[in-house]
Design a protein around this nucleic acid. Sequence first.
DNA 1: GTTTTTACCTTACAGTGTAAGGTATGATGA
DNA 2: TCATCATACCTTACACTGTAAGGTAAAAAC
Lengths: 219, 219
Amino acid sequence: MPRATKKVSQKREPLSKDRIVLKALALVEREGLHGFSFRKLADDLHCEAMSIYYHFPSKAHLFDAMVAHCLGKIDWLPDDAPWREALRHGFASFREVAHQHPAFNQFLVVYRMNSMEGLGMLEKILGIFLRAGFSPEQAARYFRLTGYYFMGATLDETSGYAKGPSAAEPVPEAILTRDFPTVVTVGPYFKPGSFDDTFFTGLDLLLDGIEMTHKGGSK
Amino acid sequence: MPRATKKVSQKREPLSKDRIVLKALALVEREGLHGFSFRKLADDLHCEAMSIYYHFPSKAHLFDAMVAHCLGKIDWLPDDAPWREALRHGFASFREVAHQHPAFNQFLVVYRMNSMEGLGMLEKILGIFLRAGFSPEQAARYFRLTGYYFMGATLDETSGYAKGPSAAEPVPEAILTRDFPTVVTVGPYFKPGSFDDTFFTGLDLLLDGIEMTHKGGSK
DNA sequence: GTTTTTACCTTACAGTGTAAGGTATGATGA
DNA sequence: TCATCATACCTTACACTGTAAGGTAAAAAC
């Protein structure tokens, strides 16, 4: 059906970047990344689509602001905290933010952190490694390792296999049990119940490995 | 500019699923995931957009087939290979495929593996863990850990920070050096030169950790 | 020789981001 | 007080998207 062309003329709070960003994030969660559009967002805001352009010159700019909003919610320990705790805490907080916006997280993980807020996050994490005494080269490498793991983890947790089918033609149950017995056997353990445990197990595994090169090498 | 409405009537090879899939993958690499469209694909195939619908009932079905094509190119060691080598080899091969299709990889990593080929991949990896003597629960967990890392790694390698700006308003050089000194210091080490090293360092770190629980626990 | 199937094309439609330009309201300067 | 200007929003229009509905020429099946 076509969307309502005439709106009831009603009092409504004026637009603002913050209000638009919040409604946009909510819309993405309601309709999915794919289902998001300026028209639907305008409906939610009780305004016309083009009014949004007064506040954001393009969809890309709006999405930048949404990323910035999410990154801004990450909690970091003070700079003098021990590096392992600082990393664990930062990643855990980031992960919580990702879980608050599962649909938007699909955008977040492929977002290149070249905005002010994105660079701020890089600065935070790289700073933790450098202050811990790692060389710039080590910092870059370990940032990558932990970042890889983190991105993949939140991505899978928010929109992976456990979230149900995305293939256009999902495999029927009968064929599943016949052709993929291992998947069926292991399937029950793919439930979100163990997400937390699994996540921190892997993160600690990586941090253990990183800590060992630290103690052994540059001390 | 509008695309040419009249085509030069010329001999051309008939359509086929394979030909469409290959051209579609090429188009995604040329124009990006965002720039892909059935009209452009039809131009490349020298046919009309709707002709593609004879072979694929929807864009989702076509993209499923593209995923299947990519997954089909992954090389796996025989079932009797040692589990660590089998995993390393499979992931390394998958990674090569991902690097052959960097733009499409953005779709691949968020793809839920519920298609025949996706489940086939799950079956392969879970099988490696089970044959190695891990319990189904361990298999699920370690599949997750390694999978998280792998997905994040290929994602960052194919479209991460090192690939240049994606933010609508990238931060100017001057502000970068002023506000993000750590990023600037570490920046040189973010070049793709060390991708291979970094990837296998992290993978081995995880496999080391996994191997230790194996030896210690269920032997 | 008739019918059916295959492989493609034409047209049309609702929805997309957004360029171009219009308009009501309030602030500012004379 | 009146003209001017900026702000905040809206209207219209355009080139694009995926795809539903239906048409058509050639090949295959009977």
